[in-house]
């Protein structure tokens, strides 16, 4: 019995050895198939003289300077003028919600607007410098829009109002502290014709 086992086991081992050997060969072969390109590299032919080198004319693609004449500021159609009668409205950080003082200010502004119904006003939304400029453009617009919506609920005709966001591009105070930031988180009212 034991010897029988021995025979069995030995035979198994032999099989295993053979299998191991075979497996290895197949494996290597397979990989050879997979990677043909890099074999023993040919020494790259050294171009002896000019002709064999790839000529590459370096031709700068002309990049035109801006056609300044055609676009300088003249396209700005509206002459903006700060409405001194209309007070600014201020906001908390990263917020477009109107505070109570803001609503009081807007009520005063609404009265003036209703009195001067021929005047068209653009509400400019501004942010402090801390946010990202893209996000602040969207936030500034929300600030302008919340002021406009409040004015409309107070009876100001919507066609008297428009909005624009400047994000953090036009700070009222160039400082870098909370006092400056608080002044910059604002809506301004600009009379346009």
């Amino acid at each position: 019995m034991r010897k029988g086992m021995a025979g069995l086991v030995t035979v198994l081992f032999c099989g295993a050895l053979l299998a191991g050997g075979c497996a290895k060969k197949e494996m290597v072969k397979g990989e050879e198939g997979v990677v043909p390109p890099v074999t023993t590299e040919k020494p790259s032919e050294t171009p002896p003289a000019k002709p064999s080198i790839k000529e590459e004319a370096v031709k700068e693609q002309p990049i035109k300077e801006a056609q300044a004449a055609t676009e300088t500021g003249k396209e700005q159609p509206v002459t903006a003028q700060a409405a001194t009668e209309l007070e600014k409205v201020f906001f908390d950080f990263d917020s477009f919600i109107l505070t109570q003082p803001s609503r009081d200010t807007l009520s005063k502004n609404a009265k003036w607007l209703l009195k001067n119904s021929q005047v068209k006003v653009q509400i400019e939304g501004h942010c402090d410098e801390r946010g990202s400029d893209e996000y602040n453009l969207a936030l500034g617009e929300k600030r302008a829009k919340s002021a406009m919506n409040y004015l409309v609920t107070l009876g100001v005709p919507a066609n008297q109002l428009s909005i624009i966001s400047y994000g953090k591009e036009k700070p009222a105070d160039p400082g870098h502290d909370e006092a400056a930031w608080a002044k910059n988180r604002r809506d301004e009212f600009v009379i346009i014709k």
Partner: peptide
Amino acid sequence: RRALKRNEPGPGGMLVWS
């Protein structure tokens, strides 16, 4: 296994097998 068992050789045979 059974076949091997039936033909189990003696100690000498075992040696030869081995």
